[in-house]
C-alpha cells in the first residue's frame, strides 16, 4: 500500500511537470491556431478561444495560387534537398567513422566551420553568383545552399550513429561472403536506419523552415517557398489585415512537419544494435 501511494504521488508530480512543459511549448502554436479560426471582426479581441469560429481563412488561402504554388515548392525543394543531403551525408559519415584517410581532420573541421558560418553573410555573394549562373529564382537555386548547410549537421549525426555500430559486424559480413557493398547495404545500413531517419527529420525541418535564403534567392512563385510567401500575403484590400490568412497558412505548413516526425518516429528505435555483441 505504501509503495502504491508513493507511486501515485510520483506519477502526479511527473504528470504536472509534463503538462507545464507541454503548455509552455505549445502556447504559441495554439495561439496561432486560435487566430486562424477567428473571424475578421473578432481577430483582435484578445480571447484565447475564438468566440466566433470560421474556416474562411483556410478557404481563402487555398483559393489562390499565392499559397498553393509555394506549398508545392516547399515540399519539392525540402524533399529533394533532404534526400541528397542524407545520401551524401551517409557516405561521408561512414568514411569518417570507419576509415583513416589523409585530410580527415580537415574535412571534419571544415564541415564544422560551415555549420557555424553566419548564413546572412553569404546571402549577398550567393545572390550575385546565382544571378550570374541563372540559378536565381529556381528550385536548384535553393536546393544547393540547403544541401550545403544541411550536410555538416547530417555528417555529425550520422557519424555518431556509425561509430556506435560494432565494426566486427562488418568483418563478420565479409567473412560470410559479402562484398563491401553488400556488407554496407545488408548489415550496416539497416543498423544505421534510426540515425538516417533522425538526420532526415532534422534536415527536412531545416529546409522547410528556412526563411533567409527563401526570401533572398527567389523573386517569383517559380521557387518561392511558404515561409517567404507568407510575408507577401495581402488582404483583399489594402485596408485589410492578412493576419487570419497568415495564421491559417502557418498552421497548414506545420502539419507536414508533424506528420513527418510521427511517421519516422516509429522507426527511430533506440538500442537497435543491442544484442549484436556481448556488452
Amino acid at each position: 500500500m505504501v509503495m502504491g501511494t508513493v507511486t501515485t504521488a510520483r506519477k502526479t508530480r511527473w504528470a504536472l511537470l509534463d503538462i507545464v512543459i507541454v503548455v509552455y511549448a505549445l502556447i504559441p502554436v495554439l495561439w496561432i491556431a486560435s487566430l486562424s479560426f477567428k473571424t475578421k471582426d473578432t481577430l483582435a479581441d484578445g480571447n484565447f478561444i475564438p468566440r466566433e469560429w470560421t474556416l474562411q481563412n483556410y478557404a481563402d488561402i487555398f483559393a489562390t495560387n499565392e499559397f498553393i504554388r509555394p506549398l508545392i515548392n516547399s515540399i519539392g525543394i525540402a524533399t529533394i534537398a533532404t534526400v541528397i543531403a542524407v545520401g551524401l551525408g551517409m557516405m561521408a559519415a561512414y568514411a569518417i567513422a570507419r576509415l583513416d584517410f589523409p585530410g580527415k581532420r580537415a574535412l571534419v573541421g571544415v564541415s564544422l566551420l560551415i555549420a557555424m558560418f553566419p548564413q546572412i553573410s553569404l546571402v549577398t555573394p550567393l545572390f550575385n553568383i546565382e544571378r550570374e549562373l541563372g540559378l536565381f529564382d529556381t528550385w536548384p537555386g535553393l536546393i544547393l545552399p540547403y544541401i550545403t548547410f544541411a550536410l555538416p549537421l547530417g555528417i555529425y549525426v550520422l557519424s555518431a550513429f556509425f561509430r556506435e555500430i560494432p565494426w566486427e559486424l562488418e568483418k563478420a559480413a565479409k567473412m560470410d561472403g559479402a562484398t563491401p557493398a553488400q556488407a554496407f547495404r545488408r548489415v550496416i545500413a539497416p543498423l544505421a536506419a534510426p540515425g538516417v531517419f533522425t538526420t532526415a527529420i532534422l534536415v527536412f525541418i531545416f529546409c522547410w523552415n528556412d526563411f533567409l535564403f527563401a526570401i533572398s534567392l527567389t523573386s517569383t512563385e517559380a521557387a518561392r517557398t511558404v515561409p517567404a510567401a507568407l510575408s507577401f500575403f495581402t488582404g483583399t484590400s489594402q485596408f485589410e489585415d492578412p493576419t487570419g490568412t497568415i495564421a491559417a497558412a502557418a498552421v497548414v505548413i506545420t502539419i507536414p512537419i508533424v506528420l513527418f516526425v510521427l511517421f519516422f518516429q516509429r522507426r527511430i528505435v533506440a538500442g537497435l544494435t543491442s544484442g549484436a555483441v556481448k556488452g
Binding site: E168, A173, P190, A276, V277
Partner: peptide, 14 residues
Amino acid sequence: DIAMVFQSYALYPH
C-alpha cells in the same frame, strides 16, 4: 571460403 567466429559473436542484431 573460411568462416570465422568472433569474440563478440558479431551477430546481426536486425
